[in-house]
């Protein structure tokens, strides 16, 4: 074989491999999570929003459990937001004081796209250095196939730089003036939840700053922080229950539901009434017989 032929074959094979990868990479690449920040260089003592995005790699994803680690000597998690997230329901929201930052969510119907926002993590920069944000190996995403099949997930580390004197991060985000989306709480009872007692369920989204918390007010009582499912305190009292969703900028959306407890006849006052009636009848029969 001549040297020039061998060279041609080597060059061709090399080029073919590269081009094969480029051509097919859109199809065989796993789903992957990636981070985006407004600037890659920020100053000390600033709040930097780190957006966590999902590229599903052409697949439909409907459930995810994500663990995030970060340079704890350089960054402090101040807050987080699910505003405009593709996740509709959370099993576990990001915690700001956990050792590991883990969140789990559900997307009924699935999401298939390249730029699905999951959460925004707001970090405060503590000191100079190269700040890293990465995903834990335990992170998982599942396909919307009815079988709970794990999606292939690729994980890349992400870095940005913190330097004293770097330009102040200007936020182009205007204050959220919209309330969370309208929602309808529901009341249910199931023997697998709260020992069969009545509970309240509710869920909504906020398309801007994200839902911060919920509050529930039973009857004439005050509002108290609550999570769904919420065990109704006054199980036997007919009352109006108000649920309030509050977003990160303090906007509220409230919804009322009437609670009318219904108990089987062997529970509560009806059986007492039956006993009383029986006693009255017995007394009446006894008195009648005695007179005769």
């Amino acid at each position: 074989m001549r040297i020039s032929d061998l060279k041609f074959k080597l060059v061709f094979s090399f080029l073919f491999c590269i081009l094969f990868f480029v051509f097919f990479s859109g199809n065989i690449l796993a789903a992957h999570l990636y981070f985006k920040v407004p600037e890659n260089l920020v100053g000390v003592g600033q709040i930097i929003p780190v957006n966590v995005f999902l590229d599903t790699g052409g697949e439909d994803i409907n459930a995810l459990e994500i663990g995030v680690d970060y340079s704890r000597d350089l960054l402090k998690l101040k807050d987080w937001s699910d505003g405009n997230s593709v996740v509709n329901l959370w099993m576990e929201r990001p915690g700001s004081d956990a050792d590991k930052l883990i969140f789990s969510g559900l997307i009924p119907g699935g999401y298939n796209g390249k730029r699905g926002l999951l959460v925004t993590l707001n970090f405060e920069t503590l000191k100079e250095g190269r700040a890293g944000v990465s995903l834990l190996d335990s992170s998982e995403m599942l396909l919307s196939d009815g079988a709970g099949t794990p999606a292939k997930l690729s994980i890349n580390d992400f870095w940005f730089y913190v330097k004293e004197g770097a330009s102040k991060l200007e936020s182009d985000k205007k204050k959220d003036s919209d309330s969370p989306e309208d929602f309808k709480p529901e009341i249910d009872r199931d023997d697998s939840v709260f020992d069969g007692k009545y509970f309240l369920i509710f869920a909504t989204q906020d398309k801007d700053s994200g839902v911060d918390y919920y509050e529930v007010k039973e009857g004439e009582g005050g509002f108290e922080r609550a999570e769904s499912p919420y065990l109704i305190r006054n199980q036997r009292k007919k009352q109006e229950i108000e649920v309030r969703a509050v977003d990160k900028d303090g906007n509220e959306r409230a919804s009322l539901i009437s609670f009318v407890p219904v108990y089987p006849f062997w529970n509560g006052g009806i059986i007492i009434a039956v006993i009383m009636i029986l006693l009255l009848i017995s007394s009446g029969v006894y008195i009648f017989k005695k007179k005769n």
Binding site: A63, M91, I107, P108, S144, G148, S192
Partner: peptide, 29 residues
């Protein structure tokens, strides 16, 4: 035990509630 039976029948059969169960639920939503 009683809940485990129901969950395994209606969701993902592994004796617990985890991400797979929710994924199955989301598919049939």
């Amino acid at each position: 035990k009683k809940i485990k039976k129901r969950v395994d029948r209606k969701l993902y059969r592994d004796g617990k509630i985890n991400l797979r169960d929710f994924s199955v639920m989301a598919y049939y939503w």
